[in-house]
């Protein structure tokens, strides 16, 4: 079995079979991660470049670990965003990296579509590690893996994504992946943070967090950006927390067993309270472990295609 594409650019258009294959392969790798020697020789001799134009230590470390545990040669290439305007062009950077004979490029970039563009100027396999507010497919895969691990299935599972849907690459990738796997997807957040076209994607929109809790099996709680620009979309953090924050009281009031995911890093007391973040409903740290396994699966499946 192998994937039908040479790249993982996003969850849009990825088939059910391919998602299934990645998630099933990740089970094997999760077992590897539980062994005393957490390394397999699968990608020996392959070189993977982690090309990060945005600072994201977590995602980079997760990829780097995944690469090392597959015995690939991992190279980190970080470019500060400030040098984008003056420094070397993106194309020249890629040409340089290619000249060093690499096999795969994991790319994180603030501009949407960069992984797509990268496939046009490079022969390497490309994995999107987050492009602007577009997609973050490995995050969606690890979220799906974690849900399946906890609930045993994805088909028919009711998942609500909570937060700034309009400016989240995690939301879009989750929507595509979950829908393909037969989950029932809704979104919940202030109306300024939800794109008008959600219904065209077959996604239900909820503005009441209690309703979201009552109606769903899983909440995927997104990080609220605290920078000034993101803050245009709601009056205050206090108001956001009051009406959309996930608190223990709120969960208790709705008296329901619910699984809580968060892609991290958490703003405690904003989108989620500390008690919930550390409580029995959350599987946040499982997500982190699963992230390595899922990324190993993606690297393995792309790196061993002929």
């Amino acid at each position: 079995m192998s994937l039908s594409s040479r790249h993982l650019l996003g969850m849009q258009g990825v088939s059910r079979n391919d998602i299934q294959l990645i998630l099933d392969t990740a089970i094997t790798f999760k077992e590897v991660l539980e062994r005393p020697i957490k390394r397999v020789p699968t990608l020996q001799g392959k070189t993977v470049v982690n090309l990060f134009y945005e600072n994201s230590t977590r995602t980079r470390i997760s990829f780097e670990l995944a690469e090392k545990r597959l015995s690939a040669d991992a190279v980190n290439f970080s470019v500060s965003t400030s040098s984008v305007s003056k420094g070397e062009s993106f194309k020249d950077t890629i040409k340089n990296i290619e000249a060093m004979k690499v096999d795969m490029i994991v790319v994180r970039h603030a501009a949407a579509g960069v992984p797509h563009y990268l496939t046009q100027i490079s022969d390497s396999n490309v994995i999107n590690a987050g492009d602007g507010i577009h997609e973050h497919p490995t995050q969606a895969l690890l979220d799906m893996y974690s849900i399946r691990e906890r609930l045993g299935k994805l088909d028919g599972v009711k998942v609500c994504i909570v937060g700034d849907i309009a400016h989240s690459r995690v939301a879009l990738s989750n929507i595509f992946g979950l829908k393909t796997m037969g989950a029932d997807v809704s979104v919940c957040g202030p109306s300024t943070m939800i794109p008008k076209q959600m219904d065209e994607l077959g996604v239900k929109v909820i503005h009441n967090i209690d309703e979201a809790i009552q109606e769903n099996d899983v909440l995927n709680v997104l990080r609220i950006q605290l920078e000034r620009k993101a803050r245009e979309y709601f009056p205050s953090i206090r108001e956001y927390h009051k009406y959309f924050g996930i608190t223990e009281d709120r969960l208790a009031k709705n008296g329901k067993d619910i699984v809580i995911l968060h892609p991290g890093p958490i703003n405690r007391g904003v989108e989620i309270s500390s008690e919930v973040a550390d409580g029995p409903s959350q599987i946040i740290l499982n997500q982190v472990t699963n992230g390595v396994a899922v990324r190993m699966a993606v690297l393995y499946l792309l790196g061993t295609q002929n």
């Binding site: 579509g113 577009h134 690459r169 879009l172 076209q197």
Partner: peptide, 11 residues
């Protein structure tokens, strides 16, 4: 702004 900008993640 529309469905395509949402799908493509472009401002």
């Amino acid at each position: 702004e529309g469905l395509n900008s949402t799908l493509l993640g472009l401002p």
